[in-house]
Design a protein around this nucleic acid. Structure first.
Length: 418
RNA sequence: GUGGUCGUAGCUCAGCUGGUAGAGCAUCCGGUUGUGGUCCGGAAUGUCGCGGGUUCGAGCCCCGUCGAUCACCCCA
């Protein structure tokens, strides 16, 4: 029988790399928790219309990358391509905005886009995101950015940068887009590019060809169109980032893939990932909630790509901290020791120590090898002699130094050492 | 979705102008009857991605297909 294979474009994480994935994800989530964000757990599929209206029909994400199917009741369902629309739906549906504002939530999980796969670009990918809803203060913009930045620094990443911009409010963008279209109409572009420009003129700023870049150099810049209010908001965001000692650069030509962004927008880019360099991005979406039928509250959030951040960590050789390793591995010698070891391991686990032990009958050498492979920080050698005297040999697997411990005080001793 | 490259042992790869497969690492056993990560010896492991074609003969050539990867597109 033929072996089954995973569907095209999915990434899987299994030992030993899964530990690394887990470390990255938990670090990102931890940063959100430390800023007061609380978990919101949502479905991975939603009414297709939610994304069409929320994300925007003109975006590539909606027009050609969604996993859409009909369920058994004939409803059109779509696997979520991004997180914000679903969060908005849930906030509106359950009136989460009725209480104190802002509502601050984080989420994590799988997202789906039917693109041609590449390293760091998968059809099922993993994001950690946060949303802060119902507060317009520029300080919250900086806070959201800081959650991501703190997480990256905690991971030990260095080779990344933050770009920020302001997209202005809806009327501003309308005025600007009109001028931009007028400008583009004067350019000599090939058919495909013209079509792209018609769909969304901002996209031309992202073109990688030098000719197009040169042509676009003379284009009007959105930031020159900002209202007094938007400009001052953006100014305050920058001051706040300065206060936080977060480095950034202003990218006046940033293009975001989703239609709902207004005002502050940002992107984290890693320099060691080839063309899939975006490791996270987000921004304000002040009209979105009203557009989806809720009250007219502002919002800001981000999505971080865990798959790509993991790749970035590997590219930079970022290591996993010790507290992710197994703490103790028990090596029993002989039948009666084995029975004692099973119970001892259970006691230690109950007491909160991560513990594993050598099963089977591989002999001491084999069991020590297993202890080594487990990555455990300590090995506890438990033989007939030791049991008779109520003791055991505790070996530090890094230094190779071992000492005798009494089983009765083992837990206290471990606590001191770990 | 468009174009290029690649697909051989669990992993990384070698395999000359077509003559039915090899290395290193990992695994297991032993050197060491109570000590891993070093060293030495030994063993096991493959429908050469899959399907078809050309040929006396295909890992190698041709076609298709699936997958990965790179660039574009797009983005996390």
């Amino acid at each position: 029988m033929n072996k089954f294979a995973a569907p095209k474009g999915v990434s899987e994480y299994f030992p030993d790399r899964s530990k690394y994935f887990e470390f990255v994800r938990e670090t990102l989530i931890d940063s959100a928790r430390r800023s007061g964000y609380q978990l919101i757990e949502l479905p991975v599929f939603e009414d297709t219309e939610l994304f069409a209206r929320g994300v925007g029909e003109s975006t590539d994400v909606v027009s050609k990358e969604m996993y859409t199917f009909e369920d058994r009741g004939g409803r059109s369902i779509t696997l979520r391509p991004e997180g914000t629309a679903g969060v908005m739906r849930s906030v509106i549906e359950h009136n989460l905005d009725r209480g104190q504002l802002p509502v601050k939530v984080w989420y994590s999980g799988q997202f789906f886009r039917a693109e041609r796969p590449q390293l760091g670009r998968y059809r099922q990918f993993y994001q950690v995101g946060i949303e802060a809803i119902g507060l317009q203060d520029p300080e919250i913009d900086a806070e959201v950015i800081s959650v991501a930045d703190r997480a990256f620094k905690k991971l030990g990443l260095k080779n990344y940068s933050l770009e920020i911009t302001s997209l202005g409010d809806a009327p501003t963008r309308e005025r600007y887009t009109k001028d931009l279209r007028t400008y583009i109409a004067t350019l000599d572009l090939d058919e495909a590019t013209t079509q792209r420009a018609n769909l969304n003129p901002l996209r031309l700023f992202d073109d990688k060809r030098d000719e197009v870049r040169a042509l676009m150099a003379g284009a009007p810049v959105l930031m020159d169109y900002l209202t007094q209010e938007s400009a001052s908001h953006f100014q305050k965001v920058q001051e706040c980032l300065n206060d936080f000692s977060i480095d950034y650069s202003i990218n006046k030509r940033m293009v975001r893939g989703l239609d709902y962004y207004t005002g502050t927008a940002f992107e984290f880019v890693h320099n060691g990932l080839g063309s899939q360099s975006g490791i996270g991005g987000g921004g304000r979406y002040d009209g979105l909630m009203a557009q989806l039928g809720g009250s007219d509250l502002s919002g800001i959030g981000f999505g971080l790509g865990v798959d790509r951040i993991l790749l970035a960590c590997e590219a930079e050789g970022v290591g996993i901290p010790q507290d992710f390793a197994l703490q103790l591995f028990i090596v029993p010698i002989g039948e009666s020791a084995k029975r004692r070891a099973v119970v001892l391991a259970q006691e230690l686990r109950v007491a909160g120590f991560s513990t594993d032990l050598a099963y089977g009958d591989r002999g001491l050498k084999g069991a020590m090898k297993a202890a080594d492979k487990s990555g455990s920080r300590f090995a506890l050698v438990l033989g007939e002699n030791e049991i008779a005297s109520g003791s055991a040999e505790l070996k530090n697997m890094q230094t190779g130094v071992s000492s005798s411990v009494t089983l009765r005080t083992l837990q206290e001793d471990l606590r001191k050492l770990l």
